[in-house]
């Protein structure tokens, strides 16, 4: 296997690792660090596809390394593992995730309560159209695979990216949230949802099977009507 070593101007280095049954890509990266080179830097936490911290580029595609079996992705017994694309490389397989999370904030990804704890708990019908739309997009765990896979992020550094816009879409559909207008304004600005070309790499590669392209299309419609009505 070859692993990216160094910072932005690093290079791929080759390592020989034993092939075992039921081996994940994270297992072989860990093998290298524990047995061949303890200076290898990479990020992981849960190892079971819940935390979203172990995403790397595996044979050219961004993937969760903990949930990717070597047997499924190795070509002729070889693997090439690099850091996620579209993010600055800190060292080896670790990227600086700050731009990704800063864009979440730019897209107003934080819930803004419209009531206080003194108010009655709001009843949300699970079968209401807004709740169905929010539920379809809610399971994002911020692994940044969609962000690394997105051509528009690569071309336009101001673009908020699929994850931040997908998050904005869940909040726009949350009737309890009190910042819809500000959020629509944020995602309708330059670099917002209208920069998306609908290439759909995000939904193709999302390990949670979410469809950020559909969320972004929803935001395009909502912001367009809000703009035509003079609300934003």
């Amino acid at each position: 296997m070859s692993l990216w070593r160094g910072g932005e101007k690093g290079r791929y280095e080759t390592y020989k690792v034993p092939l075992r049954e039921n081996q994940t890509v994270l297992d072989v990266v860990t093998f290298v660090q524990r047995h061949l080179d303890p200076t290898l830097s990479y990020r992981f936490a849960c190892r079971v596809g819940m935390c979203g911290s172990c995403a790397m580029t595996v044979n050219g595609r961004p993937r969760w390394t903990c949930r990717t079996h070597v047997s499924r992705v190795a070509t002729r017994g070889q693997l090439e593992i690099g850091p996620l694309e579209n993010l600055p490389v800190i060292k080896d397989l670790t990227t600086d995730m700050r731009p990704f999370f800063e864009k979440w904030q730019q897209a107003k990804g934080a819930f803004v309560p419209s009531q206080t704890r003194g108010d009655e708990i709001e009843r949300i019908r699970p079968d209401s159209p807004a709740r169905i739309a929010a539920d379809a997009a809610i399971e994002c765990i911020n692994c940044a695979i969609c962000y690394a896979a997105c051509d528009t992020v690569r071309w336009n550094s101001d673009y908020l990216g699929p994850a931040a816009l997908n998050r904005a879409w869940t909040l726009v559909n949350d009737v309890r949230d009190g910042a819809t207008s500000e959020r629509l304004q944020a995602v309708a600005a330059s670099g917002g949802c209208h920069a998306c070309h609908s290439h759909q790499s995000c939904q193709e590669l999302c390990p949670q099977q979410l469809n950020p392209t559909a969320s972004i299309a929803g935001l395009k419609r909502r912001t367009m009507w809000a703009y035509l009505k003079g609300e934003i």
Partner: peptide, 11 residues
């Protein structure tokens, strides 16, 4: 592209 340009392009 912002929403204003988007609307003009679609229109």
């Amino acid at each position: 592209m912002n929403v204003r340009l988007y609307v003009w392009q679609r229109l």
